[in-house]
Design a protein around this nucleic acid. Structure first.
Lengths: 155, 155
DNA sequence: TATTGTTATACTCTATAACTATA
DNA sequence: TATAGTTATAGAGTATAACAATA
């Protein structure tokens, strides 16, 4: 019964490695001129074009006022555009620009690089198995496959 | 070759689950009346009694001024005490109080509860394997087995 | 009246720099 | 001079509440 003898460490290790992975990715987004939360917005808009800001806030789990700042910044950088909906003029519809699509491609490249960084030290079988186990945990908790929160963490 | 077909998602999942684990633990420390960073201090002092504040700052990877605030708060709560070192009167030596030891015991209980929460949905074998894989990753990166950073994270 | 987005404001976390006491 | 700790200050990130335009 190895489980009973093993110390309670999965939570600790997930937090520690999650932090490490987040820092690692943050340094890559920094090189591309955006912050990690901005990268999250880009990723979501890449998959769900035409969202309005309220929908984006809900998906991200942040306040609408926070989305205003994120969208301001990405729009200033020329990566996305706001367009008033013709149907409901209260609503701002968000679209990636060409430049935004280019950046999204680079972000995906960064994610591939990160994957190689992180999995270093594991065999291909180990990697696949780790992926399956993590996915099982994530799905079992109903976590969104596209989103994770920015967060303040500890053990 | 399953690895080549698998999307680059280990980094994402580690960040997402790390965030989830951190939030989960934070809610438990909140019930005990302390914050997650304070819980980290308690854990370290439980293992390394007699540290001074500079050493603690180094171990945590935070500024000394941050340690002042953390220690102030834990001392006000009666969980630790500062004692001027007799050898070097600049140095403040930190010790857990009896009450601090009690709280540390409760924190360990919380970690056990969290472990059960997190591993729900995995078989005992899966849990053991996941633990081994995570530990391998953590060790391969030279991460401290006692410490992880408080952090701001994304993908 | 209700909803979308925006602005104003405040709070938390944390770091850097200046300072005090001691070495 | 150098170091341990403290205080003062500032910046980043985020939320809540008040507000404007539209429904």
């Amino acid at each position: 019964m190895p489980t009973a003898r093993r110390p309670a460490r999965i939570g600790f290790l997930l937090t520690q490695l999650g932090s490490f992975a987040a820092e690692n990715f943050a340094s890559k987004t920094r090189d591309l001129g955006i912050t990690p939360p901005e990268a999250g917005v880009m990723r979501i808009l890449g998959r769900h074009a035409g969202m309005n800001q309220r929908e984006l806030a809900e998906k991200l789990g942040v306040a609408q006022s926070r989305v205003v700042a994120l969208v301001d910044s990405l729009e200033s950088a020329g990566l996305i555009i706001r367009k008033r909906s013709a149907i409901d003029r209260r609503s701002q519809v968000l679209q990636l620009t060409d430049s935004g699509h280019d950046l999204l491609t680079k972000l995906r490249g960064a994610a591939e690089t990160q994957e190689a960084d992180l999995a270093e030290g594991l065999s291909a079988d180990d990697r696949d198995h780790l992926y399956e186990l993590l996915l099982k945990l994530s799905d079992a908790r109903g976590l969104d496959r596209d989103v994770h929160p920015g967060y303040r963490a500890d053990e």
